[in-house]
Structure formats: structure tokens, C-alpha cells
């Protein structure tokens, strides 16, 4: 099992995950909770019912500025004009358009998508006029909340109706979540309802525990990366 102190990058949540019996593996230079507990089948079922997974170790990158959309399209990204929508890319990455000029690009769960890295390499302040890098990989924590109860659970922490019939797949809400600013994206995984939460890294421990408390009513529990990967 990986000792998180030997890798340079650390999710703020690794202690919380270790407390809950997470087996850490190295992902992207981070200690990442691959499995929590010993019953993988139960954990997979948990992810379909109500699970919370720390995806902070995965790839993500941000860009912002008046000419950003053009630059991204020039790099091969597929986008439309409407903000607050997620645009899935061919390689499994997802581009979240937060406004006319602000974007977050999330890598896929298996680290197969190359888009986040390609964009990171392609961008330089000298060659992307009107497009600026936002260090989402450093500034933001990333959690995935999955399972059939996820929509109902949001009612305890968020003032927006996130039930599946009211909040479509690939829709984004930038709102207040447990009194914190957060980006909530509905990104179903396979047939399972799922939301990606991207928010202030410094508040990761706070929000993690606030969400788990709200999830108790639905028997929600933390799950490892493998359980979310298993959703498809």
C-alpha cells in the first residue's frame, strides 16, 4: 500500500480516506484511494446507490479569457456557445463551459484522455493571446457524487433542484453548496446518475465531511476510484 508521504502531490483528503480504510495507489503523482474497505462488490453497489469519491488526483486544467473558446477550438476541442454546459470530447475528456470565456477541462477516470496534458503543453502566455491558464489542478478539489440518491441528497446542501428530471445530464450549476461556492456538473457515468463537484481545494475537508453527513440519511458512503470507474 502506498504511503502518501512518499509522493509529492497530496490530496487534502488523504488522511480522511485513510481513516476510512482506503487503499491508496499512485495516480498522477498523488496517493489516490483506489478501494475503500475490503468488499469490492459492496463498494460498487454503494457507488450506484450513493457514493462520494475523491477525484482530486485526476487530470484537470482550466482556461479563461476573452479569446479562450477560439484557442480551445484551435486545439481541436469541440464546443458550443451555451455556457453552463459540459461538452464531452472524443477522447473521454469533458470540457465544462462556465461562461463565455471560462472553461474547466476534466480528464477521464482512466487517465486515457490526452486533452488536459496537450492543452497544458500547448499553452503559453506568449502564444495564446486572450487565453489564460487557470490552475484548476492546483486550486480546485474534485469529488464525484454518484448513485440514484444523489439528486435527492443535494436538497440538503444546495438550493437548486438537482433531481434528475429537473437537472439534465451535462448541465452545470455554479452555486452555493453547503455555503461554499462550487461548480456542480451532472456527468452520468454509464447508466448511473453522477455529479462532478469542483470547488476550493482549501475547503476540501470541510465539504467532504458536510456531504458525508448529509448522505447519512441515504446510507451514502465514500467509495474508491475503482468503484466509480466500474460505473462505466
Amino acid at each position: 500500500m502506498l504511503n502518501p508521504s512518499v509522493v509529492p502531490a497530496r490530496s487534502f483528503l488523504y488522511r480522511e480516506l485513510q481513516k476510512r480504510g482506503a487503499a491508496l495507489g499512485e495516480v498522477n503523482g498523488y496517493g489516490c484511494a483506489m478501494r475503500i474497505g475490503s468488499d469490492a462488490a459492496a463498494e460498487d453497489a454503494q457507488a450506484r446507490s450513493l457514493g462520494l469519491c475523491d477525484l482530486t488526483p485526476l487530470k484537470r486544467i482550466g482556461f479563461k479569457g476573452w479569446a479562450t473558446a477560439e484557442w480551445l477550438i484551435g486545439q481541436g476541442a469541440t464546443l458550443e456557445d451555451a455556457p453552463n454546459r459540459v461538452y464531452p470530447q472524443d477522447d473521454g475528456a469533458r470540457i465544462a463551459r462556465l461562461s463565455k470565456g471560462e472553461f474547466v477541462i476534466l480528464g477521464d477516470l482512466h487517465l486515457r484522455s490526452t486533452l488536459p496534458d496537450r492543452l497544458g503543453i500547448a499553452w503559453s502566455i506568449n502564444n495564446a493571446s486572450g487565453c489564460f491558464r487557470v490552475p484548476r489542478e492546483d486550486a480546485s478539489a474534485w469529488l464525484c457524487l454518484s448513485g440514484e440518491h444523489a439528486g435527492a441528497m443535494f436538497a440538503k446542501v444546495c438550493g437548486i433542484d438537482m433531481r434528475p428530471q429537473h437537472f439534465a445530464n451535462n448541465q452545470i450549476a455554479q452555486t452555493s453548496l453547503a455555503r461554499m461556492n462550487a461548480i456542480i456538473m451532472r456527468n452520468d457515468r454509464g447508466a448511473t446518475l453522477a455529479f462532478d463537484l469542483v470547488f476550493d481545494l482549501a475547503s476540501a475537508v470541510y465539504l467532504w465531511n458536510a456531504l458525508l453527513d448529509a448522505m447519512t440519511e441515504f446510507d451514502g458512503k465514500p467509495v474508491g476510484l475503482e468503484a466509480v470507474r466500474g460505473l462505466g
Binding site: R10, F12, R15, K156, V157, A178, R179, M180, D200, A202, S203, A204, V205, Y206, L207, A210, D213, A214
Partner: peptide, 14 residues
């Protein structure tokens, strides 16, 4: 109620 009191930790908090 269940009050929400966000708290921010630095990377070196622990």
C-alpha cells in the same frame, strides 16, 4: 439547524 460553517485548511494544516 445543521449549520454550515466552512473552514479552509492550508496544505500544511496537519
Amino acid at each position: 439547524g445543521r449549520s454550515f460553517d466552512p473552514v479552509r485548511y492550508t496544505a500544511m494544516h496537519f
